[in-house]
């Protein structure tokens, strides 16, 4: 439908933020991710698409070592952020996750006030020195998440009282409050209605100016709308990776073509 506009999107893939080489993920005896090599550029939206269970979320969770919290999960291979291996023993996963923020499928605001939700990251990482500075960070993040105007009068109301779309934008504000370099989004719009989805997508496009954004999505239209680069996963393999316009209009692998045209998945 809006295929025509795809190729016009600029791709400023000047420098590479994350490089993954020969990544394998096992859940117990299941081989969930096989030989994935990928380069994720800075200040770009990269979309991971693919049928359910293809491993795209699993791979996303490798990028900030969220899989460490699952005891049966084992990751091998090399994933580097700015050339630094994130699975190196010297890397503290807790510190890494402050640099690689994450937004989840279902909005999961903490049972705290809107203000405290956003202030959570800066507080635990000691990023601000005074209350005034924290206020500034909170306001800034809420503004960047396009939520400030809607919540500025009720910053101390519980975050769980917001609508689904507002909650998801609050979670985005919470994630960018730790000043991450990469923002991982795991199907951020799957629990939202079309209007909220449009707002979040618009937001993602704006965030691209500051972060490298990686988004997992089930919706091919969404991938086409928001991303500049697209990776297609199938059965744990990275089948094809390239410019979004290219993947959608002229896929080189037959599996990509069947998925995009709706024959598999």
């Amino acid at each position: 439908m809006n295929d025509m506009t795809l190729t016009e999107k600029p791709v400023n893939a000047s420098d590479i933020k994350i490089t993954a080489r020969n990544v394998q993920v096992y859940y117990g005896t299941t081989h969930a991710i096989k030989d994935v090599d990928v380069d994720i550029p800075d200040r770009t939206v990269t979309a991971f698409i693919g049928p359910s269970g293809c491993g795209k979320s699993t791979f996303l969770r490798c990028l900030n070592r969220m899989n460490d919290t699952i005891s049966i999960c084992r990751v091998t291979g090399n994933i580097a952020l700015d050339g630094q291996d994130i699975y190196d023993k010297r890397v503290d996963p807790v510190q890494l996750r402050a640099k690689v923020g994450m937004v989840f499928q279902k909005p999961n605001p903490f049972p705290k006030s809107i203000y405290d939700n956003v202030a959570y990251g800066p507080k635990i990482h000691g990023m601000t020195r005074s209350r005034a500075e924290l206020d500034e960070v909170v306001e800034g993040c809420l503004r960047r998440a396009a939520l400030w105007n809607e919540v500025k009068d009720r910053l101390h109301a519980p975050g769980t009282g917001l609508s689904g779309g507002q909650q998801q934008r609050l979670c985005i504000a919470r994630a960018i409050a730790t000043s991450p370099e990469v923002l991982l989004m795991d199907e951020p719009c799957s629990a939202l209605d079309p209007i909220a989805t449009a707002q979040v997508e618009e937001l993602i496009d704006e965030l691209r100016s500051q972060f490298s954004v990686v988004i997992v999505t089930h919706s091919m239209q969404q991938a086409a709308r928001v991303s500049q680069r697209t990776a297609f996963f199938h059965l744990g393999n990275l089948v094809e990776y390239g410019e979004t316009g290219h993947i959608f209009t002229n896929p080189s692998d037959p599996r990509t073509e069947s998925y995009i045209t709706g024959r598999i998945g």
Binding site: N64, M66, T69, V94, Q95, L96, R97, A98, K99, G101, M102, V103, F104, K106, N108, P109, F110, P111, Y120, G121, I124, H125, C171, R174, A175, T178
Partner: peptide, 15 residues
């Protein structure tokens, strides 16, 4: 307490 709360917190780099 839903696992999503924990994920949210770990995802922000909390111990």
């Amino acid at each position: 307490v839903p696992q999503s709360m924990r994920d949210g917190s770990y995802g922000l780099g909390a111990t």
